[in-house]
Design a protein around this nucleic acid. Sequence first.
DNA 1: TAACGACCTAGCCAAATGGCTAGGTAACGG
DNA 2: CCGTTACCTAGCCATTTGGCTAGGTCGTTA
Lengths: 228, 228
Amino acid sequence: MDRDIRSDVPLGRRMPQATTRIVVADRNVITRVGLRSILERNSGFAVIAEATSYDAVLDAVDEHGPDVLIIDLDLGDDTTRGFKLVEEISDRYPQTKVLVLANTLSEMIVVEALRRGANGYLCKDEVKADELGKGVKAVQDGETVLGKGVGKLVAHSLGSARQANERLTDRELDVIKLVAKGLSNKQIATQMFVSESTVKFHLQNASKKLGAHRRAEIVHRATGAGLL
Amino acid sequence: MDRDIRSDVPLGRRMPQATTRIVVADRNVITRVGLRSILERNSGFAVIAEATSYDAVLDAVDEHGPDVLIIDLDLGDDTTRGFKLVEEISDRYPQTKVLVLANTLSEMIVVEALRRGANGYLCKDEVKADELGKGVKAVQDGETVLGKGVGKLVAHSLGSARQANERLTDRELDVIKLVAKGLSNKQIATQMFVSESTVKFHLQNASKKLGAHRRAEIVHRATGAGLL
DNA sequence: TAACGACCTAGCCAAATGGCTAGGTAACGG
DNA sequence: CCGTTACCTAGCCATTTGGCTAGGTCGTTA
């Protein structure tokens, strides 16, 4: 943990008057412009690049080595891609802090993002203008920033004793997607080239992980968790 | 229809060099700032007020009588409230054009908004910066503006022969919400103080309206339609 | 008044589901 | 080599479901 070094070094000296260099990643123009406006309102922040795709994020971080990456995990169809990206960046570019800025608030997503190395998680609908700057500064200083509602979720996740069991496997997710389309176990089995027993098996496991008891609830929870 | 008058009057004369006066309604600061930035980039647009709640929208429109209201229908917990608001405004303030700016794209929501009097429907993740200004101008001129993906949805809605049957009743929605929570028909019946038969009845009707055959699919579709 | 829509109830039956136990394989890392 | 994880299969049984037909009350609207 290199944030421990900080206590040895006076804060003001490390970056005298430096502006925080930021890359913004969001598929939404309005959000990108808004972020830029809000952040550059107080000097001290400079948005040096914008990205609208997973690849572009990687390129931008690689090229500019920003202090902070503000990213909406949902840059494409593949939700899991966002997580991988966070992991990759916090792995390969530890000097770049990752601040996730999400549309929705889902326990599973928050926890997963933090687990993969995100340094902060804010919710678009929740943040006030001044909190943005503070958040960016904070993650840059090595703190972990959680938005108001986000904190509760994380606490809840720690409280309930499910640590390892909550992640769905690929297969389970496949089955759930077909369930959501209204297929019966038999139909799903046919489509996946497995037996009906296997389908039931995956659904049972998914049920336990999601804390659901009926397929309708499974679909609902998976949707809420952004898995679908 | 007073847009017919337009053909009698040269466009340039009616509003010589006038700036378009806009009210922006969105609970999200970033979006509000972003919109303002993008729109006021070209002079000709002035954001004269912002609102973050349904009541505030009404106040702002009443006070300023803007040319265009740009609104995200999702300003609170109550989804239907947004629709009522659109209806009220297009009823009482016909000179104010309503341009809906939504996060998600759902056939039912688009159709409902337009039915209630919205003059345009754009999707945040879809619009490009220049399209915003054009869209605002267009609705102000009495045109109906639909974003790229939005048009297809509306076409689809017109094509499929379900006009009247697609709207869920309050009761049906109540049942669906409980189904999504994983309750059985019996449990739902108890909670709603009706018989199990009634619950099944509502679900059968909802199934037909949504084109679903299993409760898991009902939940999925209702979610996708933003009803949940 | 009659028609309509939303709401409520009942019963039937085949099919689907949920919840369980009890097996199996293959791949990976300690 | 052993433990773990993901994956696959089988069978049992009570309960739930989907889909149907056939009634009923209200309140609004034509």
